[in-house]
């Protein structure tokens, strides 16, 4: 606590930097994932290929990926763009599968009914498919958010400013309080992001809040999601 009091300004600046580093990958990753997921679901062949390729991308450990980025992008080694792009890749890799599952989980009869009532394919996607897959998309987005916030700390190993700085600095100067502060700050950001997403979900998807008994399917999906992970 004492350490935090005397270094509050530093922690606050790093927190802001951390947020700035992790928000774009979450948002951009989500936006990119939807069309990719749609294409993946559209054709049987593309689904297999896209999901396998993204699965392999997701397998690349983060530290090496941060190091490959400058070569691919032509950016300087210490640029924060490297970390942002790498985190976006992870977000897409994680999100596309969930989005594909979500779009596919929409009841086929509902889609048939929508077509029968005269929705065009385009209208049907925006007004029926996308909103109905909302709950699954949301659960995927929450996973992406938590893992991105956590992964952003590793950027500090390659010199990109984030809360990970507190780990590195705390280790070099042997201050446990500094490291603990960093861990707690990361967890707080993750929790706040999660709450924001849940609230956003309630506003955008008011119909999806079901009875407790009906939630087993959703929570099983949640459990299944959780058995996958990032580092």
């Amino acid at each position: 606590m004492k350490w935090l009091e005397s270094n509050f300004e530093l922690v606050w600046q790093l927190t802001l930097a951390h947020i700035a580093l992790s928000v774009p990958p979450i948002v951009i990753g989500f936006l990119i994932s939807i069309p990719i997921a749609w294409v993946a679901n559209r054709y049987r062949v593309s689904r297999g290929t896209i999901l396998v390729v993204l699965g392999l991308l997701y397998t690349i450990p983060s530290l090496p990926l941060f190091i490959f980025m400058p070569i691919v992008l032509g950016t300087p080694l210490l640029s924060s763009v490297n970390v942002s792009v790498a985190l976006t890749i992870y977000a897409v890799a994680l999100m596309v599968r969930t989005a594909a599952d979500g779009l596919e989980s929409v009841d086929k009869d509902t889609l048939l009914a929508a077509s029968a009532m005269g929705y065009s394919a385009w209208q049907r996607f925006w007004r029926v498919e996308l909103p109905l897959s909302g709950p699954v998309l949301l659960s995927g987005l929450r996973v992406v958010s938590a893992s991105t916030v956590s992964l952003a700390t590793i950027g500090s190993v390659v010199g990109v400013t984030s809360l990970g700085y507190l780990f590195i600095n705390g280790f070099q100067r042997n201050i446990a309080a500094e490291v603990i502060t960093g861990i707690v700050a990361v967890l707080v950001i993750a929790v706040v992001f999660d709450l924001i997403l849940v609230l956003l979900g309630r506003v955008v998807l008011p119909w999806s809040r079901r009875e407790r008994t009906g939630s087993t399917r959703a929570s099983r999906r949640q459990a299944a999601l959780l058995s996958g992970g990032v580092s």
């Binding site: 893992s147 861990i183 929790v191």
Partner: peptide, 16 residues
């Protein structure tokens, strides 16, 4: 627990 651990930064835990 499984969900919360996802946000736990492994670098921080390692260093601590």
């Amino acid at each position: 627990l499984s969900g919360g651990f996802r946000a736990l930064p492994s670098l921080g835990v390692l260093i601590l």
